[in-house]
């Protein structure tokens, strides 16, 4: 059994009012520990609602959520404890910063967990390094930082709680390409170093494709599919009809393959594509020289 499991999970907004809306409908997922998963879907497909169930912020209308084998809401006094296992980084997390210094803000989560000073300090320094915040920034006010830095502080605030599962809801929204690469890079590094389960929610296939290994596609309040990325992208036509796109490079290489050029691997990122093309050209050059 995986670290995250849901059983017929359904959530309905505004039950009994004219505004009734089924946000997620009969969701059954099972995510293994240590996996890095991209959660993708259109606006309003229920991604964020599903994520908020995974740490008990929303109570299911029906169905069950299991985290690390333990059912959420089975025992209300355990809820806070389980919540510490699942770190949730909201959209635009920089708007939740409130402390006088970056240091204190990152400390908020760990302190709520009741850890001692030394442990809190260790975690702050470690996560600050992980997200690439220099030592001297820790003493600054979070409101003096740049947008990208603020976001990294907010993400560090959740990472410092060392959750078993880290969920990030649109962590790259509103950032420039460099800021986006930086955030995605640090998520990858965090996953590689800590080996924790990571869920990356996004509507950008490009972002997801080069970061994760498995993809959960949501459509119309339901799970459309959950599989590794190449088998998801293999159903490019269906994704397109749902308004989702396969990354541009992947499409280019799919076409090249259809034209009869052989590649031994799926292509998800531009960097990898560049290497591949260079290697191919090299091979061709040698071929003609011979």
């Amino acid at each position: 059994m995986g670290i995250i499991r849901t059983e017929d999970l359904t959530y309905i907004y505004g039950e009994g009012t004219p505004f009734r809306k089924v946000a997620i409908d009969n969701i059954n997922i099972d995510i293994d520990e240590g996996e890095i998963v991209g959660v993708i879907g259109h606006t309003g497909s229920g991604k964020s609602t599903l994520m908020q169930h995974l740490n008990g912020l929303l109570k299911p209308t029906s169905g069950k959520v299991f985290i690390d084998g333990e059912e959420l809401f089975a025992d209300k006094s355990r809820l806070k404890e389980i919540r510490f296992k699942v770190g949730l980084v909201f959209q635009y997390p920089e708007y939740q910063l409130f402390e006088e210094t970056v240091y204190k803000d990152i400390a908020f989560g760990p302190k709520n967990m009741g850890l001692d000073e030394a442990e809190v300090d260790r975690r702050i320094r470690e996560t600050a390094r992980l997200v690439g915040l220099r030592e001297e920034l820790l003493a600054k006010s979070p409101f003096e930082l740049s947008g990208g830095q603020k976001r990294r502080v907010a993400i560090a605030g959740v990472m410092a709680m060392e959750p078993k599962v880290l969920i990030l809801d649109e962590p790259t929204a509103g950032l420039d390409p460099r800021g986006r690469d930086r955030i995605l890079g640090l998520i990858k590094e965090y996953h590689a170093e800590k080996g924790t389960t990571v869920l990356l929610v996004s509507h950008s296939m490009e972002d997801v494709a080069r970061t994760v290994s498995k993809i959960l596609v949501m459509s119309d309040a339901k799970v459309f599919m959950y599989a590794d990325r190449s088998s998801v992208f293999a159903r490019a036509d269906e994704l397109t009809s749902m308004g989702l796109t396969v990354p541009q490079v992947t499409r280019v290489f799919d076409r090249l393959r259809a034209m009869g050029i052989e590649f031994d691997d799926e292509v998800f990122s531009v960097d990898y594509a560049k290497d591949l093309v260079l290697r191919l050209l090299e091979k061709k050059r040698r071929h003609t020289v011979d």
């Binding site: 912020l57 909201f90 708007y95 709680m161």
Partner: peptide, 29 residues
Amino acid sequence: MSAQKARGADMETGSLIKRAKALIPILIP
């Protein structure tokens, strides 16, 4: 409120002073 709850903020239990203090992480942002 959801974001701070996710970071372990507790707004529902404790003494009056403790609860008033728990509002700071919400009011400042």
